[in-house]
Design a protein around this nucleic acid. Structure first.
Lengths: 194, 194
DNA sequence: CACATTCTGGACTGGTCTGTCAAGCATCGG
DNA sequence: CCGATGCTTGACAGACCAGTCCAGAATGTG
């Protein structure tokens, strides 16, 4: 350990994440990355190995952050059903730029899960994480009587994750916030106690 | 008009479509395309202009075909609700390879809608086509009493499209057919008359 | 049959891509 | 203060990429 790195590893991964998130994997050049990260070529290769490894690290970070945010949001409200509603409506409430950027997790699945086993593996673990988070809150909602007893919480959890991903694709396809809210509203009717 | 082309334009677009569908836009090289299409470089550039134009044509063809297939399937059943169920369950019923390949329409949105205005435009028109198809069948379902009268057909149509797209992403992420069926089943509960 | 036109095949070009090399520099331990 | 270690910088290499050029072949027309 002679000379310390002049950059903060965490910070540069974050910046790389932003670029990959915005442009996708293939469409991002190493030049793009270096410019955004503010480090030299060799520093990047020494620290992360290659472009793919950097991407995987950025993706892992994205998943960890957005997974944590999901769990947080789901517990932020007193009412489980309201919390779920907030999460679904959050996509509609984003700025146009955010809606166009979409979700890096979805993008990684669509672009890479088929050809990169490590991305596929991250996709599966991310899926389980989110499904489980939704499942827990659905169980909680049933307990509180907000969600119909006949709803299977495991199935509903999976359904809610699929709904979020559907919303993200629709958002990227240019659907208006109103349309996205409509979708979220219909999705919620499958849970509500009547 | 001296010498006729040695290939069938429709056929080679179809083959190009298969490659783009499988690999995405950026990850497909012109070499890949030429090999699959079975034509020479110059023939491709003379006939289609460039890689992007070829992609757009392939995407249009995909949308036309899959849109027609959707409408056909929605009208294949006596019961509108059953037809919707068949469409949703069809994703779960695909082979693993088909599920991994996913939907070219979704892929184009995620990879390109943000940066290519023409892809964005195709995305919007495709969205309207599918939403409308679902909307019609929901209206039909309400008329026949299979779908609850309180269901707004426009909103439900949009919701069903989002559900299909969510299913496609989940499928690509490695979800099992069982999981996909669960998702479809929950989605259907938001429509059913009780 | 002969010419004009269009298509085909292959070589080629300029540019961009990812990843490496080498030389100099900063820092830590002794 | 000095040497070893490891970081940084910029130049560079080899591969690949999309797209063009050109010569030759094939076909319809007069």
């Amino acid at each position: 350990m002679a000379r310390p790195k002049e950059f903060d590893r965490d910070e540069v991964v974050k910046r790389a994440m932003a670029v990959f998130w915005e442009k996708g994997y293939e469409a991002t050049s190493t030049e793009d990355l270096l410019r955004a990260m503010g480090i030299g070529r060799q520093s990047m290769y020494d620290t992360f190995g290659d472009k793919r490894r950097l991407y995987l690290e950025a993706l892992q970070r994205y998943q960890a952050e957005s997974g944590a945010q999901l769990i947080e949001r789901l517990q932020a409200e007193q009412s489980p059903l309201l919390a779920i509603e907030q999460v679904l409506m959050a996509v509609a409430a984003e700025t146009p730029a955010e809606r166009a950027r979409g979700c890096m997790y979805v993008s990684s699945i669509v672009e890479l899960a088929q050809k990169d086993p490590e991305v596929a593996s991250l996709a599966r673990s991310g899926t389980i994480l989110c499904e489980t988070a939704f499942e827990r809150i659905v169980r909680e909602g049933k307990r509180k009587g907000e969600i119909a007893p006949c709803v299977d919480e495991r199935k509903a959890g999976r359904f809610l994750l699929a709904t979020v991903q559907g919303l993200r694709v629709m958002a990227k396809a240019g659907s208006t916030p109103e349309t996205l809210r409509d979708i979220a509203a219909v999705a919620l009717t499958s849970l509500k106690a009547r």
